Simulated assay, not measured.
Amino acid sequence: MHRRTACCLAALAALAGAAPSLAASGQQGRWHAIAPRRLALRHAATGATFSGTWHNGVVPDAGAMRELSAVLADSRTGAVRPFDPRAIEILWELGERERIREFAVLSGYRTPGTNALVEGAADSQHLRAAALDLLIPSARLAAFGAAALALGRGGVGVYPARGFVHIDSGPVRRWGEVSARRAPAEDRLSRIAEAWAATQR
């Protein structure tokens, strides 16, 4: 029994010692997969920010998700709903691909009242705290929209004239100026920038 325990400990020590050599040789895919994931964002309407580790590489951090849910609260009422980790995962993945250090969020969770005020779709993913409207610099917007579409996860709406991209963790679909045919219900999001200003008065 003692011998078996000793063998196990030796094997673990060997694995621990191998980690640096794997990194040095460039064979670090498996180790990278469990690396902590960081994210930085600010809400354009409220000024609330989050910056830090939101995922330990295996599961989302519960405390960080509570913070993110507060930052992404309804900008008109301050109401908070637990945000969908899958939507945050999509956001993080896009940040990694496009090398964006901090996201500016135009809209996260929306209450039914706020959603109606901005003429959002009746079944909007914003109502489920599963959608984000992101302000993206015009020079990077096309590439960001293409990267979001390439993920093949959730909904993507691109609005170059208004400088924002919508992403969500709902069914895979596209609208706005990323396809010839627009989805009428979701196209109402194109007026969100103007409607947001009205909610602040």
Score class of each variant (00 low, 15 high):
Tyr109Cys: 08
Arg128Leu: 13
Gly113Glu: 15
Ala62Tyr: 06
Val71Asp: 00
Ser107Asn: 12
Ile192Asn: 09
Val105Leu: 12
Arg201Tyr: 07
Pro82His: 02
Ala104Trp: 07
Gly52Asp: 08
Val156Arg: 01
Leu189Pro: 00
Leu15Glu: 12
Thr199His: 03
Met1Asp: 10
Asp187Asn: 09
His43Glu: 04
Ser179Thr: 14
Arg86Phe: 11
Gly152Leu: 10
Ile136Met: 10
Arg4Trp: 00
Ala73Cys: 15
Ala14Lys: 00
Gly145Ala: 10
Gly120Asn: 10
Val178Gly: 08
Ala19Tyr: 01
Ala122Phe: 01
Arg191His: 11
Gly145Gln: 08
Arg42Trp: 00
Leu189Val: 03
Ala64Val: 04
Val105Lys: 01
Gly120His: 05
Pro171Lys: 04
Pro184Val: 12
Thr46Leu: 14
Arg86Trp: 06
Asp61Met: 08
Leu127Lys: 03
Tyr109Ala: 09
Val80Gln: 13
Gly47Arg: 03
Leu149Val: 12
Arg191Cys: 02
Leu91Cys: 14
Ala70Asp: 03
Ala70Thr: 02
Arg38Ala: 10
Glu119Asp: 01
Thr53Asn: 03
Thr111Met: 14
Gln125Leu: 08
Phe144His: 02
Ala48Arg: 15
Ala130Phe: 15
Thr77Asp: 06
Ala197Met: 04
Leu151Thr: 10
Asp123Met: 05
Gln27Ile: 02
His126Leu: 12
Arg174Pro: 01
Leu132Asp: 02
Met65Ala: 03
Arg42Cys: 11
Arg201Val: 08
Cys8Thr: 07
Gly52Trp: 01
Leu135Cys: 07
Gly108Trp: 08
Met1Phe: 00
Arg101Lys: 08
Ala14Glu: 05
Gly95Val: 01
Val105Glu: 00
Ala11Gly: 02
Ala24Trp: 10
Asn115Asp: 10
Ile100Trp: 00
Leu135His: 02
Trp92Val: 05
Ser51Lys: 10
Gly176Glu: 05
Leu134Asp: 02
Ser21Thr: 07
Ala23Pro: 00
Leu106Ser: 04
Arg174Asn: 02
Gly155Leu: 09
Leu132Met: 10
Arg110Asn: 14
Ala198Ser: 08
Leu149Lys: 11
Ala48Ser: 07
Ala79Gly: 02
Pro85Ser: 05
Pro160Met: 05
Val172Asn: 02
Glu96Cys: 14
Leu12Glu: 03
Phe164Arg: 04
